[in-house]
Design a protein around this nucleic acid. Structure first.
Lengths: 174, 174
DNA sequence: CAGTAAAACCTCAGTACTTAGAATCTCAAC
DNA sequence: GTTGAGATTCTAAGTACTGAGGTTTTACTG
């Protein structure tokens, strides 16, 4: 009603260079990296999610449509590993996209446990329409870094992500 | 497993171990950066959340305890900007920590709308006990990068996060 | 001082998932 | 052929929040 701003607008603009506080290792490069990684991810994700939400999609749903668009029909398990949700989550998400007529399930001839998901014509038309806008939006959001810096950052994050993903869960105290 | 994949259309959400493919914007540095940022964040966050879950805490709850531990009593709004949750979320989270006796609310003399949250002795004892373990775990998770690389990555992510956070939501089409 | 806008926190219904486990199927070894 | 381990998807219950709106208090304007 009123044009007042909502209280929940979580201005991510909190000072990224917070003062290192006494002792407790605030100057620790690893901890600092984790903090800025989380903040950068959150800031970018908010823009990305807001963009796809205009079309009634969540980030995960968009990720599925995009994967199917660029790779063709995929097994549910393949999609799951790609968009990083749980096995229950992928069933839930594909169900929702299917009831909206954007994707359909198909049997897998070689393995009757498995099922493919594939874009319907409606789904393909949708992703074809919104993907270029989304890419443009991401370009704007990531424009804080030059193309060279983006490549440097991507290289470091690839290395970091691979190492973290390969590390077994549970830690040393087992 | 099934190597029956001949649909190799260009991948934008590339696997970490997949080679970047040609055409259709797959070599786009910005899109690649967004993909690896999301994957790196998710991989690290899984370890971090699993670690604090051993003590019955979510990542957000741990973030609140840690912030209060390092900064002393803070207004709820300050904490909110620090752990990046909604205004409803901060009320919910502080409530839960309070019912567990880990934090308490205190009146703010200068502004009667506002409230402080502060660690109780129990809360301080808990964070004092688990923070060093958590830091060690993060060191292991982030060890895919050298200390120098961690500093480089942190610098780039700080720059990226700041720019993304300052960009108004909604995009150019308003 | 009155009136209005805005900030700080709270309430509560809704949601986008996760987790644990069941059902079904495949494959390899016996 | 049978058995058993592992892979793949589905189901149902649970959860950690979000989003929109409400109340109280402060700040600003005339």
């Amino acid at each position: 009603m009123s044009d007042t701003k909502r209280t929940s607008r979580p201005a991510v603009t909190a000072d990224l260079n917070a003062e290192p506080l006494a002792s407790h290792g605030a100057a620790d490069p690893a901890l600092q990296l984790w903090v800025v990684l989380a903040r950068a991810y959150t800031a970018v994700a908010r823009h990305a999610e807001a963009d796809v939400a205009r079309h009634g999609l969540t980030g995960s749903e968009f990720g599925i449509l995009e994967a199917l668009y660029h790779k063709g029909p995929m097994l549910l398990g393949e999609i799951q590993r790609k968009v990083l949700v749980s096995s229950g989550g992928i069933t839930f998400l594909v169900d929702r996209l299917a009831t909206r007529g954007l994707v359909e399930r198909r049997a897998c001839a070689e393995d009757r446990r498995a099922r493919y998901a594939a874009l319907t014509p409606d789904g393909e038309a949708l992703i074809e329409r919104i993907f270029p806008e989304h890419r443009a939006r991401l370009h704007a959001v990531l424009a804080g870094l030059s193309a060279d810096e983006q490549r440097d950052a991507a290289r470091l994050l690839r290395q970091l992500g691979r190492a973290a993903a390969e590390l077994p869960p549970g830690g040393s105290t087992e």
